[in-house]
Simulated assay, not measured.
Amino acid sequence: MADRGRPRAFDRALALRCAMEVFWEHGFAGASMSDLTAAMGINSPSLYAAFGGKEQLFREAVDLYRETDGGYTERALSEQPTARRSIEAMLRDNAAAYADDTTPRGCMVVLAGSTYTTRNTAIRDFLIEKRGHTTDSVRARLDRGVAAGELPADTDTAELADFYVTVLFGLSVKARDGAELPQLQRSIDRAMSAWPTEVRA
């Protein structure tokens, strides 16, 4: 039986994009069902029919974010020719996106679960897992840099990955607090000055 509450021209992809922006701006806990349905142009029964509920909608929205607006990290790590250039591009590209006022400021994966209760620990754990994937990806890129002779053989890539991911996530928080791109760039300059002495150019 057709869902009478759903518009005939229901565009699931567009509705998901709209939901993503609500979650990005307000976080999981702060995004009410009325906020979501208003942005998506559907009613609550239609939301449940299309996405299974708020939590599943959020999970899909996070995956969409990582594939689109939040995809700078993976692109930098895979496309840049050296480990150093990968890390620097990751920081600078994300900083520019975080400070862009045409979208909500900061990183959705960092900020959307900053407040939670015992009722949504599953969301907290989901976001912790996603952030952990970022750290793992950075460490893997640093490991490749060690293997290529771009970093000293004794580089602690786990520690270095933690450091640069902490900088990355901190840039997100600063951007949400209103920091403009030049300030974020200065922090990146300082972070890159901590890069280990390279074995070769």
Rank of each mutant, 00 (worst) to 15 (best):
S46H: 09
S86M: 07
A83M: 04
L91W: 06
I42A: 05
D93G: 13
Y116T: 12
F51K: 02
T155D: 00
E79F: 10
T37A: 04
G149V: 06
Y72I: 03
R105M: 05
G53Q: 04
T155A: 04
V110C: 00
L47M: 10
E79R: 15
A19D: 09
D69Q: 11
V109S: 06
F126M: 01
I123Y: 08
A15C: 03
I128V: 13
A76W: 04
G113E: 07
T117N: 01
A99N: 00
Y98K: 05
A112T: 04
Y65V: 05
D69A: 13
G27C: 04
E21K: 10
S137H: 13
Q56N: 15
E129M: 14
A39H: 03
L47P: 00
P45H: 03
A15E: 07
G106M: 01
L57A: 07
T134A: 14
G30I: 11
Y65Q: 00
K54D: 11
V146H: 01
P152Q: 05
R84P: 04
S137Q: 15
M33H: 12
E74N: 14
L36C: 03
T73H: 10
Y116D: 10
T121V: 15
N94G: 13
T37S: 00
Y65H: 11
F23Y: 00
D35P: 08
A97T: 09
L16W: 06
A76F: 07
E67V: 04
H133V: 11
Y116S: 11
A15K: 06
T117S: 11
E55R: 07
A61D: 03
A31M: 03
E150C: 01
G71S: 12
E88G: 04
L142F: 08
L57D: 09
T135R: 14
R59N: 09
